[in-house]
Design a protein around this nucleic acid. Structure first.
Lengths: 330, 330
DNA sequence: CAATAAAGTTAAAGCGTTTTAACTTTTGAG
DNA sequence: CTCAAAAGTTAAAACGCTTTAACTTTATTG
């Protein structure tokens, strides 16, 4: 029932070696014969067996990518870019949701030589993964990792610069009572954005109006903003550590009739999908998903071709996108 | 350099057959010897080679799942459920983003006997996929498919009932000027929700205040609502075909100072993550992701064990979640 | 303690490719 | 028409595991 390379050889009147050659575009096969082979394959509905190929060649052609959640338009964009780019190099991408669960990772698809390389997208428990992958000698890189680690190649966004530019934008609009809602402390990205805020304020000779620490969720921004509103301590401008927080703040303002940007300017971070759909459209710092994905693939390919290569950390520059949620102070 | 089953056999002082047996939990191996083998594996840092196992056994242990976008909390939940459930049966889940792109699917990870089965999550170009998979004789099922197809096993939500219940809820709150914003026509789910709306209205002896057709996006709801507001033709209640549309409508209302639910009641569909985070928290129809995922896995496993099994379509009942966006008319 | 069941062993084939080596046939220039 | 280069061929090994068959050794038990 199974049709193999032998059946194709017989049908096309050529040898298995020749068939194998056209399968791999290896050495030269006369055009006429190549077509014969292709024709036979089509007629027999032949499908090369991936397991056999992988076994014989010692590589699977599959790259694994872990992520913790699907629910983020930034990840979405990064993954799509990686997928396309990898396809261009003849690799397939297999996603695995092994997020926060170390156990799941140990049991994951990425064991047993199933993949030629791994990309860890925004891993939350890096050390575990790193040890595991190093032990298994699987080439890997990290994207958007939360800690600095010189022993691993990784791609990170220049969060400091993003925070700095966002804040500077507010300052240039004439604001002086500028607040910041930071993300969770364990995240490097969160701390770097905060540092960018602080430095920009300092340079302008301004004191932070206030700094709060939240989580990357709508409700976090909402609750904090409500507190501010109820105590009459609203800043004139806010830099939120991510778009969800910013959306929560806008939500609170909208519900209390506080106009944005007239009464308060807000800038977020990430440029999530809703940032350009929900009104007022959000001024935010975009993380260029395409560049990040592309750089990640390049880095992984390098690591795969030469595992002794020096580890590097590549910083990608984010970009301030000015929309409706910020305005010159009146 | 590679350590194989032979090395483990030698190190543990047992035969390869025994080692293979402990690897597969097959026939009986004395506890003491089992431990010896496990110990040897650990010491040698042995990893069975998946390609070799797959080749020898004729199955890969991998289930493929296609999706078009990652950016949806409903998909997120369904995929997580499927992932966990499949793991319980010893299978791995590999996600592939081959969304709307037929070509991508043809070139995808799911060719070449790489997977034992496939789940198509909310496929948009079903016919293509179906033909391809049938030709390759790969067992598969569809979840949330947009067309009815008796020749394929699938899981769908009872969208009619969802639309009916949502509308009935509004009617019971005393509303009579009830509008509906439908989703794109090609989607069965969209048409069924609309039918539910129509039937509920009819049964109550009410005429639809108005029916608009949009896309499943925030901006779609926003634009339509703005039109209504500007022409002074706001309904007193709205059933939106999905949460994004509902969010867009709320956004428009919030921006124009129209209070929800006081001035207008809104019910959405899906119970996206933001539905319970963004204020006012949205009354919506939840699609039970866990049940859907579980049913999908069961169905696929059946299809894999007996490909001649009769194809079935399983309908899952959705659930109305009442939150803050709906209220009795004043 | 003999008889039987359980646990292991060795040997070999098979899974579907790739790859290499040693040759043979075809093709196209001169 | 000759001859070297190009294109094929056959044969066999290798990839790392599973599975089967025919035995042998070790436990269990009445």
């Amino acid at each position: 029932m199974k049709v193999s390379i032998f059946d194709v050889a017989k049908k096309s009147g050529l040898s298995v070696v020749t068939v194998s050659r056209v399968l791999n575009n290896a050495s030269s096969v006369r055009q006429k014969n190549r077509e014969k082979v292709l024709q036979a394959m089509k007629e027999l509905n032949y499908q090369p067996n991936a397991s056999a190929r992988s076994l014989a060649r010692g590589k699977t052609g599959i790259i694994g990518l872990t992520l913790s959640t699907l629910h983020d338009s930034f990840f979405d964009a990064v993954v799509k870019e990686i997928n396309d780019r990898l396809a261009g190099h003849g690799y397939f991408l297999a996603l695995s949701i092994t997020g926060n669960d170390k156990e799941a990772f140990h049991r994951s698809l990425f064991q047993e030589d199933r993949v030629d390389g791994v990309i860890l997208l925004s891993p939350t428990d890096e050390d575990e993964y790193i040890m595991e992958l190093k032990r298994k000698k699987i080439p890997f890189i990290m994207i958007d990792n939360s800690k600095q680690n010189a022993s691993v190649s990784s791609i990170i966004v220049d969060n400091f610069k993003g925070g700095y530019e966002a804040t500077k934008h507010l300052i240039e609009l004439g604001h002086t009572r500028i607040a910041h809602i930071a993300g969770p402390d364990p995240f490097l990205s969160s701390r770097e954005r905060e540092r960018g805020f602080l430095v920009a304020m300092e340079e302008a000779g301004l004191k932070p109006y206030r700094i709060e620490r939240g989580t990357f969720e709508i409700s976090s921004g909402y609750d904090i903003a409500m507190r501010w509103i109820d105590s009459g301590e609203l800043p004139s401008a806010l830099f939120a550590s991510d778009d969800y927080i910013a959306l929560g703040v806008i939500d609170a303002c909208l519900n209390r009739g506080i106009r944005i940007p007239e009464a308060m300017s807000i800038v977020g971070f990430d440029d999530q999908k809703f940032a350009s759909e929900f009104r007022p459209m959000l001024t935010t710092v975009r993380q260029p998903a395409d560049k990040i994905g592309a750089a990640g693939v390049d880095l992984l390919l390098e690591a795969m071709s030469d595992s002794s290569r020096r580890k590097v950390t590549i910083q990608i520059e984010p970009e301030l996108i000015i929309r409706e949620s910020t305005a010159r102070i009146i």
